Simulated assay, not measured.
Amino acid sequence: MIKVSILYPYRENGRFDSEYYATRHMPLAAQLFGDACKGWSVDIGINAGPPGTPPPYVATGHFLFDTLDAFYEVFGAHDKALIDDIPNYTDGGNGTILISEIKVSV
């Protein structure tokens, strides 16, 4: 199982609409990915540890796929629609993508 994470860095005075991201963009992506997507979630950054510190990331979206090829196949078919939706929730551009292999899940 692989996890595709999209990390959006915190930016002072940056715009990020976490409500839109969690309720519109991510469900759209999951719908476009279809059965290849085995699950998804959204994390909204709160802080960096000590009270009052800004989080390193304002939000992170996660998708689960059986294989890396399964992700590339569905993303390649829908990347334009997803990229075109980015201005609806942020003025910070594309997030940073991290693809990881899940070794342990509890």
Rank of each mutant, 00 (worst) to 15 (best):
L68M: 15
T60W: 01
T23Q: 12
G61W: 05
T23V: 00
N88Y: 06
P50K: 13
V4D: 03
L7G: 00
A77V: 04
L82P: 07
W40C: 14
L32D: 06
P87H: 01
G14E: 00
G76I: 07
W40R: 09
H78I: 04
Q31L: 10
F33C: 03
W40Y: 15
T67K: 11
A59F: 01
Y72F: 15
I102Y: 03
N47W: 14
E19H: 09
G93Q: 04
A77H: 09
S41E: 14
Y21M: 04
M26W: 07
L82R: 10
P54C: 10
L28M: 14
K38W: 04
I46H: 11
S100L: 02
F65K: 02
A77C: 06
Y72Q: 15
S105V: 14
R24H: 15
G61L: 08
H62N: 11
I102R: 09
G61N: 08
I46V: 15
K38I: 04
L64F: 11
W40E: 08
D85G: 02
A70C: 05
F33I: 03
V104L: 11
C37H: 07
S5Q: 13
E101H: 11
I99R: 08
F33D: 03
H25G: 00
N47I: 08
R24F: 05
D17S: 00
P87I: 00
S105R: 15
N13P: 05
G52P: 07
A70P: 02
I2V: 10
R11C: 04
T96R: 11
M1C: 07
L64M: 10
V4G: 03
A81Q: 12
F71T: 06
V104F: 12
C37T: 07
N88R: 14
D85N: 03
A29P: 05
I97P: 00
Y89G: 01
V106T: 13
S105G: 13
L28H: 04
M26S: 07
Y10E: 10
H78V: 04
S5E: 12
I97R: 05
P51K: 10
I44V: 15
T60L: 09
D69R: 12
A36N: 12
Y10H: 13
H25D: 00
H25N: 00
R11F: 06
A70V: 03
Y57K: 04
P9T: 05
L68F: 13
T23I: 01
Q31E: 15
A22R: 12
L82W: 08
A81D: 10
V58F: 04
I83S: 09
G45S: 06
G95A: 03
Y21Q: 02
Y72K: 14
I102W: 02
N47C: 14
I86P: 09
E73F: 09
A36R: 14
H62E: 11
A59P: 00
D91Y: 10
I99S: 07
G61S: 14
A48N: 15
I2T: 04
H78Q: 06
D66S: 11
V104I: 13
A81W: 03
S41I: 00
P55K: 03
A70K: 05
C37N: 15
I99W: 05
T60C: 11
W40P: 01
V4L: 15
I102T: 13
P27K: 02
G39M: 02
V42P: 06
D91V: 15
D79C: 09
T96L: 13
I46Y: 13
V58G: 08
V74D: 07
